[in-house]
Amino acid sequence: MTRKANVLNMQSRMDRYFSGDWKAFDGLQIVADGTAFQQRVWDSLKTIPVGETISYRQLASAIKQSTAVRAVASANANNPLAIIIPCHRVIGEDGSLRGYAGGMHRKAWLLNHEGFSARF
């Protein structure tokens, strides 16, 4: 596939996602540079279902690094493919929104777009 075709394919997938097609990124081969630890965090992020959230602590436990909550948060913050690797689905243990490189208003919007009922 040419670069132009790849760009058009991604644009189509993004359009589908924003139109409510939660399977728009299924089957997408993702290559993101990062450490082995970051890759484990990002792989785990991809398993969070649409409309659901987990805490940073739950994410750390999911990768069998329960004491690495801050490192997990850092890996989450360094996710190079936001939305595709859904880092917006990670929230504070108390249910509050915590950090998002695109801005908290966008994180809230994305969660609401995906059907997560929250009082942000």
Rank of each mutant, 00 (worst) to 15 (best):
D26W: 00
E93F: 01
R16F: 00
D15F: 02
R16D: 06
S19V: 00
L111R: 10
V7T: 05
K46I: 02
V72F: 13
D26C: 00
I63V: 08
A75D: 13
S61T: 12
R106H: 11
T2S: 09
Y17P: 02
I30Q: 04
R57L: 12
L45E: 05
V69F: 12
A36Y: 05
G99C: 08
T53D: 04
F18D: 08
R13D: 02
A75N: 12
M1I: 04
A108M: 09
L110S: 09
S55F: 05
C87N: 15
G34A: 07
D94R: 13
T67P: 00
F116V: 06
D33F: 01
N79E: 14
R119F: 02
V31S: 11
V72C: 11
D15G: 04
F18N: 11
G99A: 14
I83L: 10
W22N: 03
R40F: 00
K107F: 10
D94L: 08
A68E: 15
L8K: 08
A32H: 02
W22Y: 08
M14G: 01
S44N: 08
G27H: 04
G95I: 13
N76I: 10
W42I: 05
S19K: 06
N78W: 08
G102Q: 15
I91T: 11
E114Y: 07
V7K: 08
A82E: 13
Q65Y: 00
M104Y: 12
H105N: 13
S117C: 07
T53V: 15
R89E: 09
S74M: 15
Q65K: 11
V31M: 07
S55H: 04
P80V: 04
L81D: 08
D21C: 01
L45S: 03
Q38V: 05
M1S: 09
M10F: 03
C87L: 07
Y100T: 02
A73M: 15
A5C: 03
S55D: 07
R13H: 01
Y56V: 05
A68D: 15
M1C: 04
A62F: 04
D15R: 12
R13A: 05
V90L: 13
A68I: 09
M104N: 14
K23E: 01
G103I: 11
A101Y: 15
